[in-house]
Design a protein around this nucleic acid. Structure first.
Lengths: 254, 254
DNA sequence: CAGATCTGTTCAGATATGCGAACAGTGGCT
DNA sequence: AGCCACTGTTCGCATATCTGAACAGATCTG
């Protein structure tokens, strides 16, 4: 069987299983059988058997009446293990600590997934310890420093169908974004000037562990704290952090 | 079809799909095809097809050689959505904020899963802002305040096969644990005196949203900060937090 | 209260997966 | 080198899933 066939991926019910889980993840609520069937297009009876199986295994939960479905807790456990098992996140950990310490700001570790960036690790700012747990959440690729840093490293960046406006500074034009990516390549780091979230600016650099880069690290700064000095220092610190991470990585991989 | 049948759960390859993901989550590393086959006992060729399917879908990743498998990023995204979609976690959120604020300590929201507690939400202490992201991780049920609070609410608590020793204070005897649970019921809250982690004490109460309780909230305090006053105040604050959460829950559910 | 129109559920035939065995690489050992 | 033990990979038949249509239960409506 050819892998790029019209038959789609090999095992049908495995494909559907994860498609179902993906559906719950994207929509994030409770859905009835028929609602799911309308969305995914699978036959009712197939979904029925599948859902019952997954409920039995704890991967899908139902409401007390047994008629509304949502994602189950086992999914959470498995998801968390992705981070624990990732060698790069593990190696980057102490350097991100250091980076948060010297900047006093919030740092993130992001990984490109299709046309979005997934936050794999967050270290809150020293100042505002908001409980924002963003780990495992997606952020747009065109309006964040993480995303732009990663896009800039690709010869032909894949972009979402529409560059959704997040703030009044968001770059929504594809030409303008291409130009911005050129500047990112030139400078060696990406910046986000309240393009994703009003009042928040970010800087990011990619980790050059594979080509094109898959991972990036960033520092987020409230616009009010973004002095001229900080604008110079933070990118420099990011690059030092990158060196440290890349160094450990090369040692680990011999 | 009977639910407690010898046929096992309905759709075989869905069962295997999630069993495979569970395997990766528990072991948390990279495994070869034959290693997985030894562990799970499925035929090689079946696993082969399944793994290829899941790799194609981003739920399993391979190393550069394509011979070692690990959990993929999509699993992380789906797991994170469990927390976002949970109504109780959502409602408890601002109360946990408040609890962290008034105590100045780290608070957790835990949910019972089989014989372990899963951390669904953490709010770091005001003092030591360690980046401990424990969300999605399991903690033992017998050595934590969260676990003991939840166990105490069950008529016949399910326990792990062995009560593993975590610190020198861990209760490892089943009789002693039963006695401890009796005290928890009497007092209305559970305490952990460095039983799970040396230097850390916890208090926890269950949320009475269903019988037996499924969720609990806790406050963790470094043993060095645990004054007599704190020992009285923290359980009282936990109970106030519980009232607030239960109140919002009943409003939401009418 | 009957009819209409949604739900979730079951069933037997069409169809795709699952299985063991044989094949093909790879590295280690004498 | 040659053999051996071990991987990952492919392939055809037995078998279990998938499916569409029919059934049943609930809610709404005039």
């Amino acid at each position: 069987m050819d892998s790029s066939d019209t038959t789609g991926p090999g095992v049908k019910s495995a494909t559907r299983t994860v498609a179902l889980l993906d559906f719950f993840a994207r929509q994030g609520g409770m859905y009835s059988l028929s609602a799911i069937q309308q969305e995914l297009g699978y036959p009712k009876s197939s979904l029925y058997a599948l859902l019952r199986t997954l409920v039995q295994l704890g991967w899908v939960e139902t409401d007390p009446t047994g008629t509304l479905y949502r994602i189950g807790m086992r999914a959470l456990l498995v998801g968390a293990s992705y981070i624990d098992g990732d060698p790069v996140v593990g190696m980057a950990h102490e350097t991100l600590e250091w980076l948060a310490e010297v900047t006093g700001e919030t740092v993130h570790f992001g990984r490109l997934d299709d046309v979005e960036v997934v936050d794999l690790s967050s270290r809150p700012s020293r100042h505002d310890l908001r409980p924002v747990v963003r780990v495992g959440r997606r952020v747009p690729v065109h309006s964040t420093a993480l995303g732009k840093a990663l896009l800039a490293d690709r010869p032909t960046p894949r972009l979402p169908d529409e560059l959704e406006r997040q703030t009044e500074n968001t770059i929504t034009d594809r030409r303008a974004l291409a130009e911005e990516l050129r500047r990112v390549r030139e400078r060696g780091y990406a910046a986000d000037r309240e393009e994703n979230s009003t009042g928040i600016c970010c800087f990011a650099v990619v980790l050059r562990l594979q080509r094109p880069a898959r991972d990036a690290i960033s520092v987020s700064v409230p616009a009010t704290r973004l002095t001229k000095a900080a604008e110079r220092e933070i990118p420099a610190l990011l690059m030092r952090a990158r060196e440290r991470i890349e160094y450990s990585a090369h040692h680990l991989l011999h």
